[in-house]
């Protein structure tokens, strides 16, 4: 038996994580198609939020909103909220993965160590494309209107998706750290709520007490919401978009290596 083995080349080192991440993402998307309840639950929840916020807070008007109708004000917030809550599924999905025998095999394969995590976050990004499209349709049906143009709106959608992807890496790390789906859910939820609600997603930050404003003005949900809102409702958006992108890049730069490190360690 001759077995010729050569050390991986530089091209392989760069190519392998992408190739393997896509292979694992494909596997996760097949599961999403075959177990429709996964997709249904991650879609129903954002739709319920749209309906709730549209009709419970829909009557809110006033100076704080600068004459914008509440449905137009809230839709960017709802988009971002859905992306953040959707990221919780990354933690749950990954923690579930880690309990299966398949991971044992994956560790013995010559695949990139990052592939289990990137495959999960990429699959969740794809799912978010579906969720956001559906939300857009429902939003328009309930009276949401874009004040700028289609390109700016699309740019806003891309920002939402990128933020969802970045959040997925945070929750991938949480999923790796806690190791079982129930704990992942329990750990993720209390972190999500302040991030989403103590932000400019649903109410203008100016209406909050000062100490809360300090937090709400300096966290990634607000940064993304402000950028998307400006893209959709009009105004100078460039610097807000860069801020949002910086948050995304920073989050991935910290949490992707951390999550992969946890994957290498966890057995």
């Amino acid at each position: 038996m001759t077995a010729v083995v050569t050390a991986p080349t530089v091209v392989e080192r760069v190519y392998a994580p992408i190739h393997d991440g896509l292979a694992v993402a494909h596997r996760n998307l097949i599961a999403l198609r075959r177990v429709p309840r996964l997709l249904i639950f991650s879609t129903v929840q954002p739709l319920v939020f749209i309906l709730m916020f549209r009709y419970v807070f829909g009557g809110v008007t006033g100076r704080a909103l600068n004459g914008i109708s509440y449905v137009d004000f809230m839709m960017p917030g709802i988009f971002v909220q859905a992306a953040v809550f959707g990221a919780m599924n990354t933690a749950i999905g990954l923690a579930t993965d880690m309990q299966t025998g398949l991971m044992e095999r994956f560790r013995s394969l010559p695949m990139a160590r990052s592939a289990v995590l990137s495959g999960r976050t990429l699959a969740d990004l794809t799912r978010n494309v579906f969720v956001v499209s559906l939300m857009t349709g429902v939003g328009f049906a309930l009276g949401f209107r874009v004040h700028t143009d289609a390109w700016r709106f699309l740019a806003g959608v891309v920002l939402v998706l990128l933020f969802g992807f970045a959040m997925s890496w945070i929750f991938a790390t949480i999923g790796m750290a806690v190791g079982d789906p129930e704990t992942a859910q329990a750990a993720a939820f209390p972190m999500l709520v302040p991030l989403v609600f103590a932000s400019s997603a649903f109410v203008p930050v100016a209406t909050m007490p000062g100490w809360l404003q300090a937090f709400a003005n300096n966290q990634p949900v607000s940064a993304t919401v402000e950028a998307v809102r400006t893209l959709v409702l009009g105004g100078p958006a460039a610097s807000l978009v860069w801020q949002a992108l910086a948050w995304d890049a920073g989050i991935v730069a910290v949490f992707a290596p951390l999550g992969v490190w946890l994957y290498r360690r966890a057995v």
Partner: peptide, 17 residues
């Protein structure tokens, strides 16, 4: 990892695939 194959005790395959 490029030289080995492993079949474990708990069937390590994806049930949804």
């Amino acid at each position: 990892r490029r030289l080995i194959g492993l079949a474990g005790q708990n069937a390590a395959v994806d049930p949804n695939l």
